[in-house]
């Protein structure tokens, strides 16, 4: 269930971060990488339901937090994507992950050494575009309109608060270039295969048991195939 894992920070200090663990400690163990920022909140409940479903099928899974996420004591604004990638690889090792399921923008953190699945992967540029757009809409509402170009400039030079997330200069610039990895050991799952509406589009967090079953089925049969 809920525990912590020791994440070594760039300066060498260790930060204890939360991790959710479900299922068997032996056998396959799936590292769940949630989408970044707002979509993490929208998808977390669904992903936890998926972890329970996988556990019922005898498949272990872990959902680690990284510095700057959720209850982490580390500030978000000083985080970099390069460090998050390294931290996710640390989390994979520390938690004994054998496979990965990266969701949406979480795909940009996929540790290269792991095989697994990339669910509806989203590039960092697309993620930023949505967050910048949200800020243009919000600032218009408050009567102090800003253009996207203003916000991109701000993000690149000073960092920017986007949809309630404080994105530092390095993170902003790295996200503009971050692409989800594509290789033979990473199977892409499209929303059409899962069926039903994409839950990350929702204005409020939701869960969908049919989609959970469908995703668990895709993972289960993928593991069975690779075991043959």
């Amino acid at each position: 269930m809920i525990g912590t894992w020791p994440c070594t920070l760039p300066g060498g200090r260790v930060s204890e971060e939360l991790v959710l663990r479900f299922g068997e400690s032996s056998g396959p163990k799936i590292l769940i990488i949630p989408p970044l920022f707002s979509e993490h909140n929208l998808m977390r409940r669904q992903l936890v339901q998926l972890m329970r479903k996988l556990a019922d099928a005898g498949i272990g899974s872990v959902l680690p937090d990284l510095p700057g996420w959720n209850e982490s004591l580390q500030p978000l604004e000083t985080q970099t994507l390069a460090f998050w990638r390294e931290a996710m690889a640390q989390a994979a090792r520390a938690n004994g992950a054998t496979h990965v399921l990266a969701v949406r923008s979480g795909a940009v953190l996929t540790p290269p050494a792991l095989q697994g699945w990339s669910y509806a992967p989203q590039s960092g540029a697309k993620l930023l575009r949505g967050m910048v757009r949200a800020r243009t809409i919000a600032s218009r509402e408050t009567g102090q309109p800003e253009t996207s170009e203003d916000i991109y400039q701000l993000g690149r030079t000073q960092g920017a608060m986007l949809a309630g997330w404080r994105i530092g200069v390095a993170m902003f610039s790295e996200l503009e270039l971050a692409e989800p990895p594509k290789h033979d050991a990473l199977v892409e799952i499209k929303q059409g295969q899962v069926g039903g509406p994409a839950l990350w589009l929702r204005a409020e967090a939701a869960e969908d048991t049919e989609q959970v079953a469908s995703l668990a089925g895709i993972i289960n049969s993928g593991l069975a195939e690779s075991a043959q």
Partner: peptide, 16 residues
């Protein structure tokens, strides 16, 4: 008119 449609949801709607 729809309180759940905040700026992030509208941004998601436009991107979709």
């Amino acid at each position: 008119h729809l309180p759940e449609l905040d700026s992030m949801a509208v941004a998601g709607l436009l991107t979709e």
